[in-house]
Amino acid sequence: MRWKPTTGPFAVDGQEDEAQMTAEQGYALYRAMLRIRRVEEAIARMYPSDKIQSPVHLSIGQEGVSVGVCLALGPTDRVYGTYRGHGLYIAKGGDLKKLFAELFGRVTGCAKGRGGSMHLVAPEVGLMGCSAIVAGIIPVAVGDALASKVQGSQRLVVVVFGDGAVDEGVFFESVNFAALKQLPVIFVCENNAYAIHSRVADRHRQAELFRYGESLGVPGERCNGNDVFGVLGTMERAVADVRRGCGPQLVEFMTYRWQEHVGPNTDHAEPYRDPRDIERARRFDPLNCAEGRLRERLDLTDDRIAEWETDVQRDIDEAIAFAEASPFPDPASLFEDLYEEAPSCGS
């Protein structure tokens, strides 16, 4: 079955990417997005209880990007992300129990409670780390791709960053080096319209961010990030190109942040928002759009959706119960893990 990307306010005219996929794959994309949505909603609901004592940057409305990106990758491929990392963590296959335990600051968390929401990590499924310094992690991903190339590995690296990261010099330095060395890395810019409260056009005269790659020798394109099938199609093509040795790629996925920049609430009435954007974002909710198309083209029924909802809710309940039952780290462990033991070099 072939999928045409939706057109919409965030889509680009003439976008041709199509993913070849089975019904199973179509369902998998939807279920991954559903999982992220329900997890984020659960986090927003429980936040006032103060069980999570750290900043949270939610991905509601942006699920299509993480899911379409990660499902185009193989298990040994690696991703690097940002403080807005819950979606990426879940999409790449990170364990839900370890996620909630991390948010609750428990020793069973994915970073033993040390990193919190902003520093998720799951190396067992290829999520190498999430950093809260804008753009800082981009060259790190390029370095991983360098290692892959030097070692003749098939491993491909994806770095996901926001539209704000394209402001930083280190973005350009990284793209240049990746182009120079033709490294197996895909730069994924998740353009959710804002860096905190500032629009792309407030920070760039040339606001088509994907074009910045071209001048450095990296092909770039812009796609609708709210169409998970289109995201997957675009990524599959980019992945194939990189694996064929065509060098790095840059993709800008257009989406929209529904919640406030940081925290559990919405801030739709704040002056930096355009009310029409909220309206459009609601209409192009990636989850609803995917559901509509799955109903249209496959035999997706209410029963099946209800079943998936139940599954997700059960997983979330179990993860929360696991996190709550887990111990906090022992304060005596404060100094652990600063350095790895170096090999002894005799005397």
């Binding site: 004592q53 750290s54 600051g105 428990r106 020793v107 968390g109 033993k112 409670g113 040390r114 990193g115 919190g116 929401s117 520093h119 906090f328 780290p329 022992d330 304060p331 462990s333 404060l334 100094f335 600063l338």
Partner: peptide, 16 residues
């Protein structure tokens, strides 16, 4: 601050 990286978890943060 204790000579390590600042942790998020509350009991560790308190000790930090």
């Amino acid at each position: 601050m204790q000579r390590t990286v600042c942790p998020v978890s509350k009991p560790l943060e308190r000790a930090f």
